[in-house]
Amino acid sequence: MTMRQNLIAVLSEGEIAEIDAELAHVPIPAGAAIDALKIVQAHRGWISDESLKAIAQHLGMSAAELDGIATFYTLIFRRPVGEKVILLCNSVTCWMKGCDSLQQNISDQLGIGMGETTADNAYTLLPMTCLGACDKAPVLMIGDDLHEDVDPQSVAQLFQPGAEEQ
């Protein structure tokens, strides 16, 4: 179902209004490219080829130019992702503090490897180079929430139903 919705190519009025608000702040439309991508991704979860073309057209850019920008940034998703994206930090500090076993436990729990999405489309697991919280390593993000000092043994609890409310 989500996949289907994501294939709707034409930008919604809400998306266009948000993009146009950004356009008002830049001297040339291409300057709002990253913001436009973020806006559409916020609405649809990811940037499909069709969304990309629609944004490019709205900004007066070519699809290739915009795709060059979209694919440069790892947090612009050019493939469908689950409802929540797990960003697991694997930079030096987190690596010293055991992010490998953290990943192993997450993978065991959710049945997905790096870059994969769970069958129920709830989670996508992605590596991330530094979340900027080295003093509380190891860290990961689930959706918009940062989880610090994660204990590899108890990480499974983060994915229990209702875990985020706690």
Binding site: D49, L52, M61, S62, A63, A64, E65, D67, G68, T71, F72
Partner: peptide, 19 residues
């Protein structure tokens, strides 16, 4: 030309068309 661009970054840069 507008249909050839540098895609992605690091060691997986790709020079090509959008499709």
């Amino acid at each position: 030309g507008t249909d050839l661009a540098a895609m992605a970054a690091h060691d997986h840069i790709y020079f090509g068309r959008h499709e």
